[in-house]
Design a protein around this nucleic acid. Sequence first.
DNA 1: ACCTGAACACCGTTCAAGT
DNA 2: ACCTGAACACCGTTCAAGT
Lengths: 236, 236
Amino acid sequence: MTGPTEPRTRSRRSVERPPVTAAMIVEAATALTAEGGLEGWSTRQLAGELEVWPRVIYHHVGDRDAVADAVADRVVGRIRVPEPGLPWRQWFEELLLGGREVLRGYRGVARRLVRTGPILPSALAIMDRGVLVLRDAGFADGATAAYRYLTNSAYLLVAVEDDRAEHLPDARARLAVTLAAHRDDPEHSGLAEVGRAVMGRGADDPGAIRAVEEEFYAYTVARSLDGVGMLLGDRA
Amino acid sequence: MTGPTEPRTRSRRSVERPPVTAAMIVEAATALTAEGGLEGWSTRQLAGELEVWPRVIYHHVGDRDAVADAVADRVVGRIRVPEPGLPWRQWFEELLLGGREVLRGYRGVARRLVRTGPILPSALAIMDRGVLVLRDAGFADGATAAYRYLTNSAYLLVAVEDDRAEHLPDARARLAVTLAAHRDDPEHSGLAEVGRAVMGRGADDPGAIRAVEEEFYAYTVARSLDGVGMLLGDRA
DNA sequence: ACCTGAACACCGTTCAAGT
DNA sequence: ACCTGAACACCGTTCAAGT
C-alpha cells in the first residue's frame, strides 16, 4: 500500500542516494541470509532493506532463485581452498572442516550448494582443484565420484544442522523425552542404548550441543575419508 | 471468496458425506505428497481436495507442520525393516536400498526424516532394531553414532535427489554445458576429468540419468559401510 | 464437536507507466 | 535505463459464529 520508504518524500532515493546496483542487492541479500538463512527473507523484505520497490530486484538481478544463487556463489567463494600438494586426506579435512565454518554462518547455503553443485562458479573452482588432488592420489577414473561423495557427505550434514537450527529449536528436548521414555526398556534395548548415549551429554547447555555437533561432523568426515580411502587399498 | 465445493449446495458435504476425520486428512495429504512432494501442496489445496474449509485441517490435525509430520511418519512406516540375524552390512544394505525406493515415491520426506530423526515413531522403531544390529556386530558404544552416520549418508542423498527433481529439472543440462566448456581446458584439468566422466554417459535419456543416480547411491552406501566397517577392524 | 465464512498479514511475480 | 505504483493470484493461520 505505502511505498518502501517511510518518510515518503517520493524522490528521496533517486535524489539523495546512488542508484541501486545488482551488487548492492546481492550484498543486502547476503546480509539477510547471515541473519535468517537463505529461506528466511522475502523479495519484499530485501526490497524494503534497500528502500526500493520489489520490481527493482527483478530488474537488476532476477527472481528470488537468481538472487539466492548469487548469494550462494558469494558465500561458497569464501571457502578457503587448501594448498595443493597436501596429502589428499589432509587436503579434504581442511576443505570440509573449513567449509563448515563458512557455510554455517549462512544457513541454507549448504543445501543449495549440494543441490546445484558446480553450476555455481565458485563451487566449480573448488571441484577443479579437488578432483586433481584425488587424481594425483591415485583415484584415477574414480576421482569424480569420490569428490562428489566426500563433499556431499560433509555439506549435506551441514544442511541438516541448518535445518534443525531453523525449524526445530525444541527438537532436542522432544527427542530427549522420547528416548528417556525407553531408557531401561527391555522391549527396546536398542533405544536404551541410544538413550544412554544421548543422555550422557549435557543436552541442555547450548555449548555442549555445539560440541556434540562438531564431534559428529568430524566423525562423518573421518568415516567418509576412510570409506573412499579403501578404494586405494589404504588399510591403515 | 467462494466455498470449497464448486456446485456450492452449501450442505453437500455435511449431508451426503461422512464427516472428515484426521485419518482422511493425512491420507489425502499423503496422496498429494506422492504427486508433488511434501512442500508441493498447501493447506488450502488439501482442504479443497477434501471439500472442506481450511479451518477443518487445524481442527482435526493441526498446522501444516503437524500434517507433514503425520505424512512423514506414515511413509517411513512403509520402509521394510530387514530380518534380524542378517550380517550387519547386509542388514543395512537392505534397509538403505529399500528405504530409498519408498522415500523417492514421496519427495521431501527423506529430508524431514533426517531432520526430525527418531521423533517420528516409525523412525524410532527402525532405529531400535538398527542399533541392536550394530551392537551385536561389535560396535559397542559406537553403535549410535554409526547408525546415525549410515542412515544420514543414505537418506540425505535421497533428499538431494528429491531436491533436484523438484527445483532444477534442467540443471543437468546447465551443468553439462558448464563442464563441456572446460573439456580439454589445460588450465582446469580437474574439470576436464569431470567433464569426461559426465559426458561419457547418455546425459539426455532419463533412464540413463536414473541409472547414474542409482549407481551413485549404491556407491555412497558402500563407501559409508566401508567407513564404519574400519572401526571394527574389517580390513577385507 | 464439527464446520462455515471471512478476515489478517503475508508471499513471488508482473503489468503499465512514469522520468 | 531505472524506478514507481498497483495489481494478480496465491500463502498459513485465526477469529467469530453457526449447527
